[in-house]
Simulated scan of single mutants.
Amino acid sequence: TQVTVEYDGDRPVRVDTVVVSAQHEPDISLEQIRGDITEKVIKAGIPAKWLDSRTKFYINPTGRFVIGGPVGDSGLTGRKIIVDTYGGYGRHGGGSFSGKDPTKVDRSASYAARHVAKNIVAAGIARKCEVQLAYAIGVAEPVSIMVDTFGTSGFSNEKIAEAVSKVFDLRPAAIIRDLDLRKPIYRAVSNYGHMGREDLGVSWEKRDKVDALKAALAK
């Protein structure tokens, strides 16, 4: 499950998106699952004042979800989650890299977020930047792009996020394409972290969107 909440400053004002992927018995229809989850889980758990006509529900967006658990999600994963990134300095969504191929946004979108943040700082737009991306299974576009410059930018976080959405294609397949993530590069980053590795020439450390970001913010 994933809930995206819209804020006005530090005050929550509405729920923008709700994602639920629920495994079910093979004789249960997708329509029943979606109806039951909407009425008995989402609307029962989220107060009505937070939901409106623009709230998006993604319930089992890839379709039927009969096979799950160890059979559907086998393999090594969940290792070295903090040392692989920023050593606890930055906030972390909880998805690890180890054992995952680049089709998993836990890995590829983390690289994309690093690429975005690095170019924002390299462009002189901010001195410090954290980028958060959120996805729903089966939905290509991120359901949320959030930028936090911790008061170090002359632009609002919202304006920078808008520029990011124009300059960077953050769909998973596009990230794989643009950062060339199908190459056998992962053994090299399995030690000493994945971020800041300019010594390895990894694609997410490139400062190749600086001019495009400046142009987007100048409009």
Results as ranks from 00 to 15, higher is better:
V3Q: 00
V3H: 00
T4G: 00
V5I: 12
V5T: 05
Y7E: 01
G9L: 13
D10F: 09
D10C: 08
R11G: 01
R14Y: 13
V15A: 08
V15R: 06
D16V: 06
V18M: 08
S21V: 14
Q23M: 14
Q23S: 08
E25C: 05
R34N: 09
D36Q: 13
I37Y: 02
T38E: 13
K40F: 07
A48N: 11
A48H: 13
A48D: 15
K49F: 15
K49V: 13
K49W: 10
L51T: 13
D52F: 10
S53F: 10
T55H: 10
K56A: 14
K56V: 11
F57H: 07
F57N: 01
N60P: 01
T62L: 02
G63E: 01
R64N: 05
I67V: 15
V71E: 15
S74E: 12
G75L: 11
L76K: 14
R79T: 09
K80W: 14
I81K: 14
I81D: 14
I82K: 11
D84E: 15
T85I: 12
Y86D: 10
G87W: 08
Y89T: 12
R91Y: 07
R91A: 13
G95R: 08
G95K: 08
S96F: 02
G99F: 06
G99I: 05
D101I: 01
V105K: 11
S108I: 08
Y111A: 04
A113P: 04
H115K: 06
H115S: 04
A117H: 04
A117Q: 02
N119P: 12
I120V: 10
A123C: 12
G124D: 04
I125L: 10
C129S: 03
V131L: 00
Q132T: 01
A134F: 01
Y135F: 07
A136D: 02
G138R: 05
G138D: 09
G138A: 05
G138I: 10
P142F: 04
P142N: 03
V143M: 11
V143C: 09
V143K: 06
I145T: 07
M146L: 14
V147D: 04
V147G: 06
V147A: 07
T149L: 04
G151T: 03
G151D: 03
G151L: 02
T152H: 11
F155S: 02
F155N: 06
S156Y: 05
E158L: 12
K159D: 15
I160N: 10
A161F: 13
A163E: 15
V164W: 14
V164R: 15
S165A: 14
S165E: 09
K166N: 14
D169H: 09
D169P: 08
A173S: 14
A174G: 03
I176N: 08
I176W: 09
D178Q: 14
D180V: 07
L181E: 06
L181C: 05
R182T: 07
K183F: 00
P184S: 02
Y186I: 01
R187E: 12
V189M: 12
V189D: 07
G193K: 07
M195I: 08
M195C: 01
G196P: 02
G196M: 01
R197N: 07
R197T: 03
V202Q: 09
W204F: 13
R207P: 02
D208I: 14
K209C: 11
V210E: 07
V210K: 12
A212Q: 12
L213D: 06
K214Q: 09
K214G: 03
A216C: 03
A216F: 02
A218T: 03
A218W: 00
